[in-house]
Simulated assay, not measured.
Amino acid sequence: MGSLKSKRWSDSIDRAIDSLPPALADGVDAFGVFIELEKGHSRHTVEGYQRDICQCAQFVATKCKRQIWESVKGEDISAWLQSLDDEDYSAASLARKLSALKHCARFLVAEKVIRDDFTELLSAPKLARHLPDTLSPEEVDALLEAPSRHSAQGLRDRAFLELMYSSGLRVSELCALTLQNLDLEEGFLRVEAGKRGKDRLTPVGGRAIEAIKAYLHTARPQLVRPKTGSVVFLSNRGTALSRKTVWHWIKKYAQVAGIEKSVKPHGLRHSFATHLLSNGADLRAIQEMLGHADIGTTEIYTKVDRKQLISAHKRFHPRKA
């Protein structure tokens, strides 16, 4: 396997790896190199994998006294997962962490660092497919009207809220959107999916186009700085708007709008899909706009729609009693 070191963008990841016994640290680093260079994973994905694997390696080193990957056993991993469950980690988080470790273990077997895959007999916890939280059309209207029309920040925030609801963008896709990938004349934008994914074209609605034009014409020039690139949505420093900032302002505007339920960035994406389906859009078209590889992922919204139908039936049917 050698002593290849993965590119470390994060100080926290750097410290976590360096705190491990050398042999365990080498395995985490080599796996990072593999998924970055061979698999073409993004920086965000590489860091996520390494963070989960470091957490496991730290546990087996301190609690199970393992100094090398070859000595790690399946029961060590079970004990690690149990410790996380005791700390109230969600089933989704446990499944993600085990998936990362399974990928790493297979890599270590292929590299002949270990003979047997210590995760082979472990299965992920079963995940309950929760219905996503959505806003009603009235709540969406109130949220989108909350930002000011008289400040650069308000115009920016109104534009990104309109766009998230109009096109079902993930917050990461919104923050990475560039001017080159935005075609307001044709009413489309291109979402770049990275090295391993597939770019997709997504429609932009009329109100979102109006809000974005107002932002680009009036507000964005006020936010541009000498080193500003071509990203559409800018912070007050002229850099790309961060996911944390988007999250912060959505929560603020939800409070201004008087929305009592928890409103998260992904909630606008869920609302986009649910409202399209409720108004007769084809599920395959929604799948394409959301960028879901599997139609099964999109089908969760049919359950949301059925829930609304049952609620409406109970409220309005003359024979409901």
Results as ranks from 00 to 15, higher is better:
L4A: 11
S10R: 10
I13F: 05
R15P: 00
D18L: 00
L24Y: 01
D26A: 06
D26F: 00
A30H: 01
A30S: 09
G32H: 01
E38R: 01
S42G: 03
T45F: 03
Y49C: 08
R51E: 05
I53H: 03
A57R: 01
F59L: 04
K63A: 14
K65F: 12
Q67W: 06
W69C: 07
L81A: 11
Q82F: 14
L84T: 12
S93L: 11
R96E: 09
A100Q: 11
K102W: 09
R106S: 14
V109Q: 09
D116H: 13
E120A: 15
E120I: 15
K126N: 15
L131N: 10
P132M: 10
V140E: 05
L143H: 02
L143G: 02
L144C: 03
A152R: 02
G154P: 00
R156S: 01
D157N: 11
L161C: 04
Y165M: 09
L169E: 06
E173N: 06
A176E: 10
A176M: 09
E185V: 14
E192K: 13
K198R: 13
L201H: 07
T202S: 15
P203E: 03
P203R: 06
V204F: 05
I209D: 02
E210Q: 13
I212M: 06
A219T: 08
R220H: 08
R225C: 08
G229M: 03
F233P: 04
G238V: 07
A240P: 01
T245C: 13
V246F: 10
W247M: 09
W249P: 03
I250S: 02
K252R: 11
K252C: 01
A254D: 01
G258A: 01
S271V: 02
T274R: 02
N279F: 02
A281D: 04
T297F: 08
T302A: 12
K303H: 15
V304Q: 07
D305K: 13
Q308E: 14
L309Y: 11
L309V: 14
L309Q: 13
K314H: 15
K314E: 13
R319A: 11
K320Q: 12
K320E: 10
